[in-house]
């Protein structure tokens, strides 16, 4: 009965390494990140200074936040494509309402539509069993439409980004980006939810085997509803931060980050089929992508070639990474 429970010391070296990688998937990721930074330093000696590090982190944080939404939803085998719209709505509303109301009210108002999107997503996916890809794509499009209508009504009032957000998005204190003040608690919360709460455990279990969770007494729709609302709220918060960083409201502010955030989660080792992954991996994944973006910029390639290379690298890294940690 204990035949298949092979202990590590009996297995050959290759298999032991594989099992080690499978048990500690962060190790190869961090190695990759360090390698990328080294390559960057060779191509452009001297780039590795405090300012560059600060900037990289500053831009990686919004990406990592959005990738947090993807990590959480992907654990259940889902995906959230509406995060771009949720974030953009929050950003646009805080900028326009910031001109009329005080910053705190504007920020609270900005998070309401994000929560609504999450609620609709959760009902669609959890109760009506619409595939998350379609559901979130649908709400995303509806959200963009609403935002366009809203834009016409507020066109006269002008825009003002609250100073607090600008401080948070762009400010640097003792060499550290202020955005870390938001990011570190949020990241800690995400990791805590995943590792140490009943809710987190259910996310993994649902992604792994939904039928088994049902037999264990889990009500799927409750978990999914809470999950997508949480994801949208996180996207809204990310939108506020991103507004402070970019400072120019637009109707497609956070949209370009959506698919990159999916890539960050996947590179970070989250399985798109569910049941596997962690936010720590996603953070490293977001950093890897951000460093790659810098790398491709300093190579001074034409935009088209840069995008091709970016896509190819994402594919290669993901494929290689899955190879390394796949233990079967």
């Amino acid at each position: 009965m204990s035949i298949s429970a092979t202990t590590p010391e009996q297995a050959p070296l290759g298999r032991r390494i594989k099992r080690f990688m499978s048990d500690y998937p962060l190790v190869p990721l961090i190695i990759l990140l360090v390698l990328l930074v080294l390559v960057l330093n060779i191509i452009q000696p001297g780039i590795l200074n405090q300012r560059w590090v600060g900037n990289t982190i500053k831009f990686a944080i919004p990406l990592a936040l959005m990738a947090g939404c993807q990590t959480m939803t992907m654990l259940t085998g889902g995906i959230d494509l509406s995060v771009g719209t949720a974030a953009t709505m929050a950003a646009f509303i805080v900028a326009t309402q910031g001109a009329i109301h005080d910053p705190a009210t504007a920020m609270l108002m900005a998070l309401v539509p994000a929560l609504c999107i999450g609620f609709v997503n959760g009902i669609g996916v959890g109760v009506f069993r619409v595939h998350p890809l379609i559901m979130t794509l649908g709400t995303s499009l509806i959200g963009v439409g609403c935002l366009q209508v809203y834009q016409r009504t507020v066109i006269a009032s002008g825009a003002k980004v609250p100073d607090f957000l600008i401080w948070l998005g762009t400010g640097v204190t003792w060499g550290f980006p202020n955005a870390l003040l938001l990011f570190i608690p949020v990241a800690a919360l995400l990791i805590f939810i995943q590792k140490r709460t009943g809710f987190g455990r259910l996310l993994y279990a649902i992604g792994d085997n939904e039928r088994a969770t049902r037999l264990a007494g889990v009500k799927y729709w409750q978990v999914i509803l809470a999950l997508y609302m949480f994801s949208s709220l996180l996207a809204g918060v990310m939108g506020l931060l991103y507004m402070g960083l970019i400072r120019a409201p637009s109707l497609s502010l956070a949209e370009p980050l959506v698919l990159t955030s999916v890539a960050a989660a996947v590179i970070g080792g989250t399985s798109i089929f569910g049941g596997r992954g962690s936010y720590t991996g996603t953070i490293v994944g977001a950093l890897i992508l951000q460093v790659m973006i810098t790398l491709l910029t300093v190579l001074q390639m034409p935009e088209g070639a840069r995008r091709m290379l970016f896509g190819a690298i994402i594919l290669a890294v993901t494929a290689a990474y899955l190879r390394i940690i796949d233990d079967k």
Binding site: F192, T197, G198, A216, G217, Q222
Partner: peptide
Amino acid sequence: SAAFRNWGP
């Protein structure tokens, strides 16, 4: 962890 009241830490 199944019940809503047990979703916490």
